[in-house]
Computed example of a mutant assay.
Amino acid sequence: MVEYTDAIRTILISFAITIILGPILIPLLRKLKIGQNVRDNGPKTHLKKSGTPTMGGVIMLIALLITVLTFGKINKDMFILLISTFGFGLIGFVDDYIKVKKERSLGLKPYQKIIGQVILAVFLAVYQSNTSVLGTKIIIPFVEGKFLDLGPFYVPFIAFVVVGTVNSVNLTDGLDGLASGVTLIIMAFFGLVGLNWGMSSISIFSAAMTGACLGFLIYNSYPARVFMGDTGSLALGGAVSAIAILLNLPLVIPIVGFIYFIEAISVIIQVLSFKLTGKRVFLMAPLHHHFEQKGWPETRVVAVFWIATVIFCLIGIVSIN
């Protein structure tokens, strides 16, 4: 049984490892000329960020792995959490590598990324449906003691949730400290749930990821010295998805991950509106760029999105208790 002190210790250790790795890996990334290629159709204020070292997600992943292997128990659930996180992180790594090597803002082709993501998502869904006490049932937020049995629709539904979440986190990673800060708060939420429900693997894993995100913010907050890249954002999406699925809480993701959700929805609305009417609903999508175009400083957008995540995580706690 994991105690609160164990979780806090895990956070601190993961944080410390991340802090130590930063000054080692960031200069290495710079030396290898692994710099960010900023897209031309983004905010003009972001052009100055071109060349900032990217693929910094490896810092969080190394810290996570060291912490979990040292202080966590490697059972089936922990193994699945690592497979999901590093599996999606690998897809992001390949994507980042192609961007850097070919010096462009686009890496893997969309269908290539989706194929890899779907394979991992289906694997996660099949595992949970075969090992969970609830089987193909999921918890319904705000309805105590009630479950929704998805039956044969469980695997496709979970796969959709996982792929959607992973790509939503990726879309959220557009401002300094935004994705890492939002995910830090969500990981703390899942760590608390894991502790209260006696799920040690989830509590330790979430604590390790919380510490890694917290440490990464030292280097990723405005003005960022390193970007996480798709290596980091897809890995974070894989971690969030896997934890929610193992907790049978896929329906809580749109609540605690509200920022992820609205970022993705803003892009969908923008694309559909432009294709159907030729007009744009937002000044720029994803949503964080809309606020930038409205004149908000980048730091204000990030702070407001962090605050919103705290509020929705508090709502998330209420929804499952």
Rank of each mutant, 00 (worst) to 15 (best):
M1R: 14
M1A: 14
M1W: 07
E3P: 06
T5I: 14
A7N: 08
I8C: 05
R9D: 02
S14K: 02
T18F: 01
I19W: 00
I19Y: 01
L21Q: 01
P27A: 04
P27I: 02
R30M: 03
R30H: 12
K31R: 15
K31V: 10
L32K: 15
K33Y: 10
Q36C: 14
V38G: 11
N41W: 14
N41F: 12
N41V: 09
G42N: 08
G42F: 15
K44C: 05
H46Y: 09
L47A: 10
K49Y: 09
S50N: 15
T52W: 06
P53D: 00
P53S: 05
T54G: 08
M55V: 13
M55F: 14
G56M: 11
G57P: 10
I59E: 03
I59H: 07
M60L: 11
M60A: 04
M60W: 02
L61I: 07
L61E: 10
L61G: 15
A63S: 14
A63N: 04
I66W: 00
T67Q: 01
L69E: 02
K73Q: 03
K73C: 03
D77M: 04
D77F: 11
F79C: 06
I80V: 15
I80K: 05
L81Q: 08
L82F: 01
G89A: 02
L90D: 08
L90Q: 11
D95R: 08
D96S: 10
Y97F: 14
